[in-house]
Design a protein around this nucleic acid. Sequence first.
DNA 1: CGTTACGTTTACGTTAACGTAAGGTTCTGC
DNA 2: GCAGAACCTTACGTTAACGTAAACGTAACG
Lengths: 130, 130
Amino acid sequence: MSTVSEQMTISQMCQQFQVTPRALRFYEDKELLAPLRIGAKRLYSHRDRARLKLILRGKRFGFSLEDIRQLLAMYDTHGSNRAQLARTLELAALRVQQMRAQRDELSVAIAELETEIAKGHAALMAAKGE
Amino acid sequence: MSTVSEQMTISQMCQQFQVTPRALRFYEDKELLAPLRIGAKRLYSHRDRARLKLILRGKRFGFSLEDIRQLLAMYDTHGSNRAQLARTLELAALRVQQMRAQRDELSVAIAELETEIAKGHAALMAAKGE
DNA sequence: CGTTACGTTTACGTTAACGTAAGGTTCTGC
DNA sequence: GCAGAACCTTACGTTAACGTAAACGTAACG
């Protein structure tokens, strides 16, 4: 019934997410992923894929793998007692603030670059008549 | 009249921007900066400071120094002929697209993280009664 | 005139995030 | 039963972005 098999091999993962096997094993080594093991082979579940998406997105934002590892912990509701959870939530809130700041700054940068582009086009037009 | 002296020494720069001398010299080596030279000493102008701001901001967005070097070229209107300018503008437009995409993605990520945080708080409240 | 502050160059060291090569296992088709 | 494909581990190599140490110049201060 399911076109996507629940468990995926490493090469299937690589194709779907455009990463190398080395990268996936590296993330595992750094405890960002923990795929099922059948013998020595790795099998990636839906959950693993969701985590990988978050990893890759984090990277695009310029977060380090260590940063991302901590972010991922927030998506693991289980495995934390009250105190741990509370601390995690604080870190998460802080991270959200940073992300908001980053987004605002990004907006400013976009606006500035667009201004420069407009100037550039103007210069191009002016130079046209020479 | 000016409270900020037009030309700043390397240590003044370091203090103002919270970077090390090594970093400034490194950026210079990579042709991101080109401070005035009096003998061997470096003197940073207003323009150099503007460029450094852009460098540091670029870094916060996860851009590589090489990326940033190209971005800086867009703020140098001079020194480019028509063809060069046109190509630069294309690159700039592309970069803006990427930055927009990054900002959108960032918004999504923020929303998701906030959802998780809300869930976390709910869990915290639920666990309170145990 | 020595030393302290501030600057310089040159060059090797370090960390993150993988790449890449070597050598070994396991399954599958012929 | 063996070649090839897909997987594995171990381990050294690589790039970016600086850190850090050594060895030196120079300008002012006491």
